[in-house]
Computed example of a mutant assay.
Amino acid sequence: MSFTAELIISILLLVGGVFLLVGSIGLARLPDIFTRLHGPTKATTLGITGVLLSSLIYHSLNQGGLSVAELLITLFLLITAPVAANMVAKVALHHDNPPIPRTSGQALMARAKERKAPEQDSDQT
């Protein structure tokens, strides 16, 4: 394996590991469920994507062809993580989990729970 390939794989592993660490710390340290969702859905998804891309490059170079398994896992995670976060946020909203007081848009949360459209200002029409 060439030095360039090893360098790219190492950089992807390091960047992925840093994002995984930041996402895990965010999951543990953020104050409420709505802010806590950002850790696993944003940073951790990006981190595992870096790790899987490095694995894809490594196995593709060693096997002489494209490693489809890592590519499919990466695509599946990138598609399902935002959907899962949306579902968790909806469940938290309907179970009356309160956001922290400094969260903006709390009036929108009440209207979303009632499944109503946001109110429009009369001067915007």
Rank of each mutant, 00 (worst) to 15 (best):
T45L: 09
V83G: 01
G65F: 09
G39T: 10
K42H: 12
T35I: 04
V18W: 06
L77V: 13
P99G: 10
P118C: 10
L13W: 10
A117E: 11
V15P: 05
G16S: 11
G64K: 05
D96N: 11
G105S: 13
S54C: 07
A81W: 05
F76I: 12
G39D: 06
Q120L: 11
I25G: 08
I25Y: 05
L20P: 02
L20R: 01
D123K: 14
N62D: 14
I100L: 08
V68T: 13
D32H: 02
R102F: 04
L66N: 01
L93A: 00
A117P: 03
S60K: 00
V22K: 13
T41H: 09
L66Y: 04
L52V: 02
P31Q: 09
I11D: 13
A5T: 15
K90A: 06
T41P: 06
Y58S: 15
P99Y: 02
T44E: 12
F19P: 10
T103E: 06
G65L: 03
E6M: 14
T41D: 01
I11E: 10
L37S: 03
M87R: 11
L20C: 12
F19R: 15
S24Q: 07
G39Y: 04
N86G: 07
I11A: 07
N86V: 02
L77D: 04
H59R: 09
F34L: 01
Q63S: 10
T45P: 15
T49Q: 10
V15W: 13
S24Y: 11
H95E: 08
